[in-house]
């Protein structure tokens, strides 16, 4: 595995890998989100209690799951960056952070828009909502730490440490609805034993989650390519690339 992974520590190879992967991610994004949204918003049946307003689930749940998914991938990249001192992994942390922050913001905003008509409040300081808000601040923290240092090396290290420390928040978000009394309802789709959601609604939801995952991946890849070029802009391979293009 080392032999296979090691070449990607080099910026040029990583850049090429991004280029190879990007079309697949874009295709999956386009197909899944188109299918998932049309199916979910137009064809899935209305909920017995919430009628049509439950349909925001097809945006809220994927973005919330991906806000946590993006954070875990960012943290894994941060561990690789700190332990193996691989520059590309550090760039990946910075590439993922704003994408994850955007997902968290989408989850919070759609959640508020859903909460107002259903619960009767835009915002409640319950454990789930608060911990998700902290996740947003963690993303902001990672980004601003990176940019706060004149020296990108130490900035990167500080951002990586914060990213790793923030992982503690992920289980708290996930289990908040079980550990404490919250206004937010429990998890729907991780409850495999009982059918908490009807298959006619579950399928479009799963397709949307896959689409959002590919979307996060695609955006992160584009950003990673950019970061690599920024860092390597004086290297011959970048000059070659630019003069060719």
């Amino acid at each position: 595995m080392w032999k296979w992974l090691h070449p990607y520590a080099k910026a040029e190879r990583a850049y090429q890998l991004c280029n190879t992967l990007l079309p697949y991610f874009v295709t999956v994004t386009a197909v899944c989100i188109a299918v998932g949204w049309i199916w979910g918003l137009a064809f899935a049946p209305a909920d017995y209690q919430q009628k049509d307003s439950y349909r925001i689930i097809f945006i809220h749940v994927p973005s919330a799951i991906l806000s946590m998914g993006a954070y875990s991938s960012m943290a894994i990249a941060a561990i690789v960056a700190l332990v193996w001192q691989i520059r590309n992994a550090e760039l990946a942390v910075i590439a993922i952070a704003p994408v994850g922050a955007a997902m968290t913001a989408i989850a919070l905003i759609t959640g508020a828009a859903w909460g107002k008509p259903m619960w009767g409040a835009w915002w409640v300081w319950d454990a789930r909502l608060t911990s998700e808000l902290i996740l947003l601040f963690l993303y902001f923290g990672v980004l601003s730490l990176y940019h706060a240092f004149e020296d990108k090396k130490s900035g990167g290290r500080a951002a990586c440490i914060l990213a790793i420390v923030g992982v503690i928040n992920l289980p708290i978000i996930h289990f908040s609805v079980e550990w404490w009394n919250t206004l937010h309802q429990g998890s729907t789709i991780t409850k495999f034993d009982t059918s908490a959601i009807d298959p006619s609604m579950l399928w479009p939801l799963l397709i949307n989650i896959l689409g959002f995952a590919a979307f996060v991946g695609a955006l992160s890849l584009v950003r990673l390519k950019n970061e690599i070029l920024q860092v390597e802009k004086h290297r011959p391979w970048v000059r070659q690339l630019v003069s060719r293009g």
């Binding site: 909920d47 619960w119 609604m201």
Partner: peptide
């Protein structure tokens, strides 16, 4: 002074709920 509704994590079409 404030009443909020809590809903559960179950989503299903009306016919199935019935």
């Amino acid at each position: 002074f404030e009443v909020l509704a809590k809903h559960d994590e179950e989503y299903m079409p009306a016919e199935i709920a019935e």
